[in-house]
Structure formats: structure tokens, C-alpha cells
Amino acid sequence: MPYHANYATLELPAQLKNKTMHMFTLSDDGPSEFSVAMSQADAQGNDSLINFAQRLAAELEQALPAFRLISTIERTLDDTPAIELSYCWHSDGNTMHQRQAITMLPRTEAGDVQALLIAATCLKPFTDEWNAAFDGMLGSIKLRHKMAPVIGEAASTVPARASTVFALSERRRTLHAFADHDEACRKTDAHEVEHEAWAFFDAAGTPLHPNFVASDNGTSRRKAGSYVLEKRPERAAPTLRAQLYQASMFVAGSAAVRLSSIADVQAMLDQSAEG
């Protein structure tokens, strides 16, 4: 069968099994504070996603000392159903922490079933920085079997929807993209917003300002999600295009967001400015 790598394509003999693993680390030698591995694993004939994830968790519990499953959540990868396992275990006196996303791949021509596994590992509990880094990677995933080009149709250079809302954290140097206003308000902590830790923008890069519409028992502490975003032309504020340099990490907060990098956002804003 044909095998595609970054720099080459080759034909694999049918009797060879593909055990490819892609590993990304922060350093060349020694343990890495944060690393990501991507691999494929054989599934059983009629495996469902949930069955595969449950069996994987059971195998990890048998193989890893002091294994503890922290959470199992449903999510998507490129609009495809996925499950994420979060767990920890002991290794050489350390407690290792891992988040692993799993999705099923289409059957091969021979009828084989495989799962795609993407795992992030930390030597310590995940920080906001490494959670955001891994979320950004998962949000940028484009599954190869879904990328077949449509003949005569050019790829869009501006994949964002008009409803897209951006949230910029100068402190974290992170830019989040959400499908719409509602998602941005639900997924961005209201207390941080109240303390001006986030700057919001619409799809054209125009500033949006939070308006807190409800309080918690009359106190100054608002309930999460109790604000809305609105334009206020009377308040002078820099555009996203002017502040984009502050972002070094991109996170797609929703599978509906078709942007995958800061470069995509830059191209979208440049085209909007030219228009």
C-alpha cells in the first residue's frame, strides 16, 4: 500500500505492518517537560470508538505502575468523533501525566480497522501553557481521508466564518478562535474577562467589549458566562491586526473554526483590510 511521509512516498509490501510513531519534544536529549506522540494502533474487527478507548485504558492500567484514570471525555478531531483520556502513572520516582486523544480511521481496502492516537505527556501536571499547546495541536488536525480535493474548486484562503470571535491573552501570548459570541463567552472565564485579561475581536478584527449583564447576589463577582460581547465605536481600541504580534500560540476553541494557525488569521485579516 502507499505510505506518505513528510518528505517521500513509498510502496509498502503487504506483509509489513505500519508501526510509525511521530514524536515531538522540547529537547534532543533527556526527558522533555512536554512532548507529543502520534501513532496508529490496530483495532478489533467491529470496534467502536468507546470500546477501543475502554480497552486501551484497561491495557494502560495493566502496563503502567500506579496508573490512575482522571477523566474520559467525548470530543471531536476535524469534526470526527473522538475520545480523550487523561491519566497519570509513576515512572522512575516521578508522576507522569498524559492526555491522549483517540479517533477511528476509515477501514482500509483490506478491511482492517485502525485508531489514530495523539498523546501529550508532561513530567508534571499540565500547566495552562501545555494544555493550550496541546489543544491548539488537536484543533489544527486535518484528517487526510477528509482532505480529498474537489476538482475545479480552489481552496479557500480565508476559512473563517463571519461569526468567528477571537480572544487574545497578552499574558499567555495565546490567541483563541471561537465559532461565535456565545461560545466565546461560555469558554472564556468571566472573572478573568472582568479583570481585562482577555481582548476580544470579531472576524474582521474589530474590537469587541464585554458587557456584564448579571451579578451574583448583587456582589461584584459575576457568574461564569454572564457577559455578552458588543461593539463600542466610541471606545478607541486597537484592532486584532495591530495586536496579533502579541500571540505566539493559536488555539481553535471549536471544531467549527477552520483556521489552524496564526498565519491563517494574519492572511484573513490582511484580505479583510484589502477589501
Results as ranks from 00 to 15, higher is better:
T157C: 05
H181N: 15
A190G: 04
R186V: 09
A154Y: 04
T164H: 07
A155R: 13
D182I: 04
A199C: 11
V165H: 04
A179F: 08
L168K: 06
H176F: 08
A162K: 14
A190D: 03
E194T: 06
H176E: 10
H195M: 10
S169H: 06
D182C: 03
H176W: 09
A154I: 09
A155W: 05
S169W: 05
T157E: 14
R173C: 02
E194S: 04
R172M: 10
T188E: 01
S163E: 15
E153W: 11
E183L: 07
K187D: 11
R172F: 07
L175M: 10
T157A: 12
D189P: 06
E194W: 00
K187E: 14
V158E: 09
T157D: 14
K187R: 15
T164D: 02
T188D: 04
L175R: 10
V193L: 03
R186Y: 06
E170R: 02
G152Y: 00
I151W: 12
R161T: 13
A190Y: 02
T188H: 00
P159D: 04
V193I: 04
E183V: 09
F178V: 07
S156D: 12
E192C: 07
H191L: 14
F166Y: 05
E170C: 01
H191C: 10
H195L: 08
A190L: 01
C185L: 02
E153L: 15
L175G: 12
G152W: 01
E153H: 15
D180I: 11
A160F: 10
E170N: 04
A155I: 13
H181A: 13
A167C: 08
V193Y: 00
A162F: 10
D180T: 09
E192I: 10
L168G: 12
E183P: 09
A190I: 01
A197L: 12
A184F: 00
L168E: 11
T164W: 01
T188W: 02
D189C: 08
F166H: 03
D189F: 05
